[in-house]
């Protein structure tokens, strides 16, 4: 299908707040986004099945009370599980960004190792330094990952802004499985070397093995703590004035690529 026929759903409400820039990202990537309040899905006015891809966006759903993502994930689990399961089993795409990542780990959509959907296997715990942090970090993508979003990406600078982003797998066995299956698609990297960073501030939260983003074994469900939708314009980058002077200012913000990959994939495969 044409890219503009790819329908992307942005779910909002209850304290989520990145709906506008996430919709802008899908639009800039060529798709047709629509933003819906969760209640419009819960009360049956609209259906998940109308869409090819779904974004769980950033924000503070229910104020992060009882742990980030907990109450929102709980609501979906109790009131929309069947529909969501069908959506995922259909091979449609899901991205969870920041609070959305926290939500889909609580739901057990990622990493779903062993095909175990709705089983929580990893967590995003409070940052090691104990405080919320806003900064730009560098990500290194895993070229061997099945993730459809990160294809062709090597290094990617993005902003992070969270208080609960420390990636923790359930146990070592699970971490090894994640790594063996290349479900770890993004790691925090040291800008000097481009290699995974284990220390603050380049690893901004103390994540285990510098893990910043993961996918499920199909590569179609993807979650990450950094915010690609906040780097759509080249003028978002903190060093853009310097890049401009040196003639290396990119045409688009580099965060856009994740969305473009997803929309292209959907247009070709869904």
């Amino acid at each position: 299908m044409n890219k503009k026929d790819v329908k992307a759903l942005v779910i909002t409400g209850f304290g989520l707040n990145c709906e506008k820039e996430t919709a802008a990202a899908f639009r800039a990537a060529g798709a047709t986004p629509e933003t819906l309040h969760l209640n419009d899905l819960l009360d049956g006015q609209r259906k998940l099945g109308e869409f090819h891809m779904l974004a769980f966006i950033g924000g503070f759903s229910f104020g992060d009370h009882i742990g980030a993502g907990t109450v929102f994930a709980n609501r979906i689990k109790y009131r929309m599980r069947t529909e969501l399961e069908a959506f995922v089993r259909d091979g449609r795409l899901v991205v969870g960004i920041c609070n959305g990542f926290q939500t889909i780990t609580r739901l057990g959509l990622v990493p779903a190792v062993g095909g175990k959907l709705f089983e929580q296997q990893v967590a995003l715990a409070q940052n090691e330094q104990g405080t919320f942090r806003d900064d730009w970090i560098l990500l290194k993508a895993n070229p061997a990952s099945p993730c459809v979003f990160t294809k062709g990406i090597d290094l990617l600078p993005l902003p992070i802004r969270h208080g609960e982003g420390r990636f923790v797998p359930r146990d070592t066995a699970l971490r090894k499985e994640l790594e063996a299956q290349n479900l770890v698609c993004l790691r925090y990297a040291d800008p000097e070397t481009g290699e995974p960073a284990d220390k603050f501030p380049h690893n901004p939260n103390g994540s285990v093995n510098s893990i910043a983003g993961i996918c499920d074994p199909t590569g179609r469900i993807f979650g990450l703590m950094p915010h690609p939708e906040a780097y759509l314009s080249p003028f978002n980058h903190p060093q853009w004035t310097r890049q401009k002077l040196e003639g290396v200012l990119p045409e688009h913000g580099l965060g856009l690529q994740l969305f473009t990959n997803a929309v292209n994939f959907a247009a070709e495969n869904l």
Partner: peptide, 22 residues
């Protein structure tokens, strides 16, 4: 300052902290 979000909405161009090391 870094405990405050200044990037949400994706609109920031010249940020509260600047320089090579921001």
């Amino acid at each position: 300052c870094r405990q405050y979000d200044h990037e949400v909405k994706g609109l920031s161009v010249i940020k509260p902290f600047v320089g090579v090391k921001n």
